[in-house]
């Protein structure tokens, strides 16, 4: 564990807490893509199956349980409790366009052709693109609530910090995992446009509105 990874994990944790607080406090999931949230729930459940087969540390297990349970809770809030506030007219990204290529890629390019390993690889690839329905929704409506933009910033920052963690591990442990690195870089690049808007607008106290 190095400082970049810890910061990345905390940023990830903060993103999810911000999202849940936004939904709970405003009693609304307006502006949040249910499709992205479904993809994230799929990411956590397929990646953390090793929770039952491989104990790494208490920290690791607690975080895994947190990510799986909060992603299920988010889906419950969006599709059951606050269903009336879910903005499904703007949440129209076809997730099959992501799921099919990611499944094929996971079956073809992996470290080991075993069920757990293929699922781990699938989750890494899926995570890299899972935010696309959300970014598509923001671009479609042309704006995002400030709290939603904080959520997106923390979620994007988490994988960017992981890239520094991988650079650190390469230099100091001689370890690298190309699948994680390539997917992590793709994931971070997808946020770049949003990062630019966040820094130039939200930090200066303006709402996140896309240029017309």
């Amino acid at each position: 564990m190095n400082v970049f990874r810890l910061a990345g994990d905390l940023s990830h944790l903060l993103a999810i807490i911000i999202l849940l607080l936004k939904i709970w406090k405003t009693r609304s999931c307006a502006g949040i893509s249910g499709r992205s949230q479904i993809l994230f729930a799929l990411v956590y459940t397929t990646r953390y199956l090793d929770l039952f087969t491989n104990f790494i540390s208490l920290y690791n297990s607690v975080m895994k349980v947190f990510f799986i349970s909060t992603s299920c809770a988010t889906i419950y809030l969006m599709y059951v409790k606050f269903k009336a506030t879910y903005d499904h007219n703007h949440d129209t990204f076809r997730i099959g366009f992501l799921l099919i290529p990611v499944t094929i890629l996971g079956l073809l390019i992996n470290h080991d052709f075993t069920p757990l390993e293929v699922l781990w690889t699938f989750s890494i690839y899926l995570e890299s693109v899972a935010i696309l329905p959300q970014l598509f929704m923001v671009s479609k409506t042309g704006d995002a609530e400030t709290i939603t933009s904080h959520y997106l910033f923390c979620l994007g920052l988490y994988r960017a910090l992981y890239i520094f963690n991988w650079i650190y591990r390469y230099y100091f442990e001689g370890f690298y995992d190309l699948i994680a690195i390539v997917a992590g870089v793709v994931q971070t690049v997808l946020y770049c446009d949003f990062f630019y808007l966040y820094v130039t607008r939200v930090i200066k106290g303006k709402a996140l509105k896309l240029p017309a």
Partner: peptide, 10 residues
């Protein structure tokens, strides 16, 4: 297995 080291990440 070397790649399993990455599985301790989240």
């Amino acid at each position: 297995d070397e790649h399993l080291k990455s599985h301790d990440e989240l």
